[in-house]
């Protein structure tokens, strides 16, 4: 049994919240630059140029890439041979988020009650997804998620008879409806299978995967490519003002499902698809 001090968790979470909001991962940054190079619409190209300049300023002046520094979504793969000492793990994660958002000059965008809507002033609580795995490490992914794109996400409870065509229609429809509201070019996270909540979590997980990778199953990898082509044929383009780059990538995750169903969740994300991952 390996012991890990809660303070180690706190300091890592704090640093990850800050770095995720200031720097994009290499895969996303490269895709943004490629979109600038390939964009066919003149205004779209100008906008992609501004998004690249924005990344440079964020880095140089330590200003968040986007003012919506998100709710902190934290994926934890907890090795079953780890014992966290000094504090409950959930409390340690929330303390790290609190320190990161307060000390990192990040926006506090969380309200305590969805109806009363009083700001918690420290961006807690985080939304935490735990997964118990083998081993004595903890892998943590901090993925701050803005709500411009989150609000345009959709869930379809498809029937088995809808088939792969039903999935394609749903994803393309969700992207069309998101249009300029969700800040294209997008990264589109899709979760297929499981049940109502599992599909949504799969879609969110899909957003944290390197966009230069494909799903290991060939038929799903093919679907990722086909969907990306169909989405980019919509012509929505950068900022929704027309162009060839509507999405940078489509990432799909799947899970077993029931004989009666084929849930399909689409989690929209803008190009500011943030995630920072560390193994402790």
């Amino acid at each position: 049994m390996r012991e890990i001090d809660a303070n180690t968790i706190i300091s890592n979470i704090k640093e990850m919240c800050i770095e995720a909001n200031l720097y994009l991962s290499n895969d996303i940054e490269s895709a943004v630059k490629k979109a600038f190079d390939t964009e066919k619409n003149e205004l779209g190209k100008k906008i992609m140029g501004q998004l690249i300049e924005n990344l440079e300023i964020a880095d140089k002046d330590q200003i968040p890439i986007c003012q919506d520094t998100g709710m902190a979504i934290v994926f934890v793969k907890l090795g079953q041979d780890v014992h966290v000492t000094g504090m409950n793990l959930t409390d340690a994660i929330n303390e790290g988020v609190r320190q990161g958002y307060v000390e990192g000059y990040l926006r506090k965008s969380v309200v305590k009650d969805p109806i009363i809507r009083e700001n918690t002033k420290d961006n807690t609580p985080a939304i935490i997804h735990y997964d118990i795995v083998e081993g004595e490490n903890i892998e943590i992914t901090v993925a701050p998620k803005g709500f411009g794109s989150e609000n345009m996400s959709r869930m379809y409870m498809l029937k088995p008879a809808d088939g792969v065509e039903g999935i394609k229609k749903s994803v393309v429809e969700a992207v069309s409806m998101a249009g300029p509201n969700a800040c294209p070019p997008f990264v589109v996270g899709v979760g297929i299978g499981g049940n109502f909540e599992k599909a949504a979590i799969l879609a969110k997980t899909a957003l944290t995967r390197d966009i230069n990778t494909h799903h290991p199953d060939e038929h799903i990898a093919t679907l990722e490519d086909e969907l990306l082509n169909e989405i980019n044929a919509l012509g929505i383009g950068p900022a929704g003002l027309g162009g060839s780059n509507t999405a940078l990538a489509v990432n799909i995750e799947t899970f077993a499902t029931h004989i009666a169903g084929m849930p399909c969740a689409i989690n929209m994300c803008c190009h500011v698809n943030r995630h920072s991952r560390r193994t402790i």
Partner: peptide, 13 residues
């Protein structure tokens, strides 16, 4: 008007 979404650092200048 629209300003460019996701360009908050640039616009802050």
């Amino acid at each position: 008007f629209a300003a460019i979404g996701g360009a908050g650092a640039l616009l802050s200048k």
